[in-house]
């Protein structure tokens, strides 16, 4: 087994901070040359590109003072934007949880014609610009679109409705669950299930008692990543949502409108809320990953 083979075991889209089980402890500090150089480059780049702009925004937010900040972030329009954003993202994450698990299972467990094409297509949402995805979805689901022609007469309106936001979010975050579950599923030895089956477990029992616990951490991580990505999605959503305040207006769009209105304090305050959300999800994925690693250790 070459070292490259093991790469596959590292779940691709998983937050990468925590050390993986087979990693070597670097132990001796600074044995290899280049600490100064790589630290210098990384720190300088992060300060210039990431930290400094973030600090500029936080400074702006802090200058508002707490009462003003609270007034902005708790305004009725902001609250309905959070609700729309988070509930849509949750629905998209649930859909992708099911669909992603199904795809991962099928792609890992079975050989069938067209498998490689489907495997490739899974990456489409990451490769396709979100504005293009939005244009495609609004055309598909519009009253004259390929799907809209069927759905609209049935009373299902997707465009300019919350369903449209969910569709756009689900599309753009689809690969996460597939790509986190796939490698873990591949690692489960066939004989584990075989043993369970020979011991008399039904297929359902094999899945729920043997497989599900093993993939649960990776699966949850995938769903959380999916949720996080959906919260931040903008390009695809604005094309399909109709952007009606209080009905189909997401937080990112509200920030954009506040900027256009030259209402910078409000833009800064709302952006800070989204930034805080990002930190929370980052923290969650790291926790989940630690959980996953404990599982991985146990299963070995």
């Amino acid at each position: 087994m070459t070292s490259l083979d093991t790469a596959r075991e590292a779940p691709r889209a998983v937050a990468f901070g925590t050390r993986l089980p087979k990693a070597r402890k670097p132990g001796r500090r600074h044995l290899l040359p280049g600490f100064g150089l790589t630290f210098g480059i990384t720190a300088l780049y992060l300060v210039l590109i990431v930290a400094l702009p973030l600090a500029a925004m936080l400074l702006k937010t802090f200058s508002l003072g707490w009462p003003e900040f609270w007034r902005i972030v708790s305004s009725p329009r902001a609250i309905s934007a959070y609700w729309i954003t988070f509930s849509s993202a949750a629905a998209a994450a649930v859909f992708n949880g099911f669909f992603g698990l199904l795809l991962a299972w099928v792609l890992v467990r079975y050989e069938f014609p067209g498998k490689r094409i489907i495997d490739g297509l899974v990456d489409l949402p990451f490769a396709l610009p979100t504005a293009v995805a939005g244009l495609a979805l609004v055309t598909l689901f519009g009253p004259a679109g390929w799907y809209g022609q069927i759905l609209v007469p049935l009373g299902v309106t997707v465009t300019h409705a919350q369903l449209g936001i969910i569709v756009a979010m689900a599309f753009t975050s689809l690969p996460f669950v597939v790509r986190t579950v796939q490698p873990v599923l591949e690692d489960i030895p066939e004989d584990v299930q075989e043993a369970a089956r020979l011991l008399g477990a039904t297929p359902f029992q094999v899945f729920s008692r043997v497989i599900l616990p093993l993939i649960l951490p990776a699966f949850t991580t995938g769903v959380v990543l999916c949720f996080a990505r959906a919260i931040g999605e903008f390009g695809a959503v604005v094309f399909i949502a109709g952007n009606l305040p209080g009905m189909t207006e997401i937080v990112s769009l509200l920030i954009f409108i506040r900027l256009d209105e030259h209402n910078y304090p409000a833009a800064a305050a709302l952006a800070t809320v989204l930034l805080a959300t990002a930190f929370v999800t980052l923290f969650l994925t790291n926790l989940l990953q630690a959980w996953q690693l404990r599982y991985a250790d146990k299963s070995r």
Partner: peptide, 19 residues
């Protein structure tokens, strides 16, 4: 139902999105 930020966006909403 919706306040677009520019005049043309409003027109698009009316004619393309049929709102």
């Amino acid at each position: 139902p919706v306040f677009e930020t520019g005049g043309r966006a409003a027109t698009t909403t009316f004619v393309e999105n049929k709102i």
